[in-house]
Design a protein around this nucleic acid. Structure first.
Lengths: 198, 198
DNA sequence: GAGTGTATAGAACGTTCGTTCTGTAGTCAA
DNA sequence: TTGACTACAGAACGAACGTTCTATACACTC
């Protein structure tokens, strides 16, 4: 048995490529074309193999469901090291789309210019994901409009109790100075994530 | 006309939530339940409205296709500022999954421990996406196995021409020292992206 | 060469899909 | 009160879907 486990995986990979590009599972007719068969029963034969192999599954109506992990394998700390192939199935996976933007409606992506937040680990060229909110809490990194220009800073609370509003903006770079509300700024969004690609 | 444009959007949003959770478009029968109708023709009536509104579209076989952007809106530099609702449709969008892990097979995610790369903008607690490769180039950030422990450093080339192999590991933190091949290390993967979430 | 298992073709079937047509209750305006 | 329009219900239809059964061509074994 399983003399052609390699072949079976080949068929599965073709289906996986279809899913990756079209973002949905193929129908039997589409698999017919994709796999080069002339009948749906030949497709059914192959699908049955993939089902037994656990590569795919079905919903109540017979439509195919992907069974492979759609995310990326998640390792522990850097110290933990890389897993052996046998350990791979124990790993968690991650879906970046849902992890980074749980609320797509109010989320935006900004490309960072300038080094005013470099000590916070945000470098020029990085992308930050920001979210518009009704209220902003001190301690978070916010994008604010100061005199018509947009800037990214820490949101801080002044020491005194709130007669003067009590907020100011603090950069994470010694070469820049804090911005106080006398100059009147408006907070536009809060940074919820940073993404850098090399 | 369009006396109930608000209602139409409500139906669209319900469909969008279905798509977000199930990762596929609903069928007419499913929309029937989702929208609380007793017949598919009522669904057809609503779907026609959403089609005219450009909220969805159809493929050749009549199945529904999402027409809304599935990614996140991409703004320019921080200086550019936020767009008005009218400008929104001009924005690009981004899909983080494809952007961050173009090659899911050989990609892993690691959680960073320690501050040895803090001057490179990689802080403890950040997640780095690494990729296994056949060869690694100097200048990139790599994850290496040094005496059984895993560590993340810059990969550098020694000044002299390559008799001694010519590679060493350099941290991005003055408090740590470079690691030279005399201690014999093995490079496991290269860092292709950094993700931090607040 | 007879038997067995694999891999496909071909045809037929019931279900689900999206479509279409007819009907009707309700609203609004003339 | 009539007419036009909206928002559904209900039924019927063809196309596409996944399933199943039979047949066949080929390889391998005994």
């Amino acid at each position: 048995m399983e003399k052609d486990a390699g072949d079976v995986r080949e068929y599965g990979e073709k289906m996986q490529r279809f899913f990756d590009s079209r973002r949905r599972m193929p129908s039997f007719s589409e698999l017919m074309v994709l796999w080069g068969y002339k009948t749906k029963s030949a497709v059914h034969y192959r699908v049955e193999q993939l089902l037994e192999a656990g590569f795919i599954s079905k919903d109540r109506s017979g439509h195919l469901l992907p069974q492979w992990e759609t995310g990326v394998r998640l390792l522990g700390l850097v110290e933990a090291g890389f897993p052996s192939p046998a350990e791979e199935e124990l790993l968690d996976v991650m879906d970046f789309d849902q992890y980074l933007t749980p609320n797509k409606e109010s989320s935006y992506i900004l490309k960072v210019k300038g080094d005013s937040m470099i000590d916070a680990g945000i470098q020029p060229g990085d992308m930050v994901i920001v979210e518009r909110k009704a209220q902003y809490k001190p301690g978070s990194i916010v994008v604010a409009n100061v005199d018509g220009e947009y800037t990214m800073k820490y949101l801080r609370k002044t020491a005194g109790t709130p007669p003067a509003g009590g907020f100011f903006l603090e950069p994470a770079n010694k070469n820049y100075k804090p911005i106080y509300p006398s100059e009147s700024f408006r907070i536009e969004a809060v940074v919820i994530a940073v993404v850098r690609k090399y």
